[in-house]
């Protein structure tokens, strides 16, 4: 474990993103367009908190998958090989997961702000909702980064990314919508959300462990 490598690789991710500003702008635009499409397609009807919740997480899900898919696809095989020579592959993965978590946090906050301007803000427990957003970004980032490292090796990576990750992401998504139902005050008064948070952290824990055990078998060609 060489943490200096990790810091440098993380800096590299930020630098790369800064140099290719059009890519991150594209994702931001994607979020804006999607929110407007979702709102207009629901015939500008009064969106009940229940529907608000579902649509919001769909927007975050699709924004996340599009933001993360490029993390392994954008860099050519030769350049990746170069990285693997210089640094521990696991550190490369860790830097990408951390970077994607930060990116998704920014994106989901942005989605939330835009979405609440357009469709209203029914959130009752703001603290819990922000916590849900953070936990969601973490879970999405781990699962999508790992799947994108597999999908990047194949010829049809965009399709594979979707079909490989949707079933895997479902337990996380269900727990997140459940948690945000608490934040929206849609749950019965005596129900508690401790178990949902524990479940979410447990799933994240399983995924992160597996990711680090399995990644060495992915990058070697």
């Amino acid at each position: 474990m060489n943490w200096r490598h990790f810091i440098i690789l993380l800096q590299k991710e930020f630098l790369l993103e800064f140099r290719q500003r059009y890519a991150i702008s594209g994702i931001v635009l994607y979020v804006f367009s999607m929110i407007f499409v979702v709102y207009i397609a629901s015939a500008k009807a009064d969106i009940s908190p229940k529907i608000w919740n579902v649509l919001f997480w769909l927007v975050v899900l699709f924004a996340s998958i599009n933001a993360v898919v490029k993390s392994f696809v954008q860099e050519s095989g030769a350049r990746q090989l170069y990285y693997y020579q210089l640094a521990e592959p696991v550190m490369l993965l860790l830097s990408k997961i951390v970077y994607n978590t930060l990116l998704l946090m920014v994106l989901s906050c942005l989605s939330f702000v835009t979405y609440s301007v357009v469709a209203g803000n029914p959130v009752k427990d703001a603290g819990l909702f922000w916590l849900t957003l953070l936990l969601g970004s973490l879970g999405f980032s781990i699962a999508f980064t790992f799947i994108s490292s597999i999908a990047a090796k194949a010829n049809n990576s965009a399709t594979l990314m979707a079909i490989l990750s949707f079933p895997v992401i479902l337990p996380i998504l269900l727990t997140l919508t459940n948690l945000s139902k608490f934040a929206l005050g849609l749950m019965p008064p005596l129900a508690t959300y401790d178990r949902d948070i524990i479940n979410l952290l447990a799933i994240d824990g399983i995924l992160v462990t597996l990711t680090f055990v399995l990644f060495p078998f992915i990058w070697k060609d």
């Binding site: 790992f146 597999i150 090796k153 194949a154 490989l164 079933p167 895997v168 479902l170 337990p171 269900l174 727990t175 459940n178 178990r195 949902d196 479940n199 447990a202 799933i203 399983i206 995924l207 597996l210 399995l214 078998f217 992915i218 060609d221």
Partner: peptide
């Protein structure tokens, strides 16, 4: 060979996500 290796990785990953799907989520 590459397909077999990546499929093996995904199989392990998929099996691990089967556990929450079949044993954690239904309890909720």
């Amino acid at each position: 060979e590459k397909g077999a290796r990546l499929a093996a990785v995904y199989n392990i990953f998929a099996f691990a996500s089967l556990i929450p799907l079949l044993y954690i989520v239904p309890r909720m």
